[in-house]
Simulated scan of single mutants.
Amino acid sequence: MTDRRANRLEQALRDAGVRVTRQRSALLRVIAAAEDHPDAAELHARAVTAGAGVSLATVYRTLTTLQAQGVIDKLEFQGEPARWEAADQHHHDHMIDMDSGAVIEFTDERIERLQAEIAAEMGYDIVHHRLELYVRRR
Rank of each mutant, 00 (worst) to 15 (best):
R5I: 14
A6E: 05
A6T: 04
D15H: 10
D15W: 13
D15F: 14
A16P: 00
A16K: 00
V18F: 04
V20Q: 11
T21P: 05
R22G: 03
V30I: 10
I31P: 01
A32V: 03
A32Y: 04
A33P: 04
D36R: 12
A41G: 06
E42W: 04
E42T: 09
A45C: 01
A45Y: 13
A45Q: 12
R46M: 07
A47G: 10
A47D: 09
A50P: 03
A50E: 10
G51I: 06
A52D: 04
G53Y: 05
V54F: 03
V54C: 03
L56P: 09
L56M: 14
T58L: 06
V59Y: 05
Y60K: 15
Y60Q: 14
R61N: 13
R61H: 12
T62N: 02
L66K: 07
Q67C: 04
A68V: 00
Q69H: 00
Q69A: 04
V71P: 00
V71W: 02
D73Y: 14
D73P: 05
L75R: 14
G79P: 11
A86Q: 11
D88C: 02
D88A: 03
D93K: 10
H94F: 15
I96W: 02
D97M: 14
D97W: 08
M98P: 01
M98G: 05
D99R: 15
D99N: 14
G101Y: 13
G101H: 08
A102K: 14
A102M: 06
I104P: 00
I104S: 07
I104R: 11
E105V: 12
E105P: 09
E105D: 15
T107G: 12
D108G: 10
D108A: 11
E109W: 06
R110Q: 14
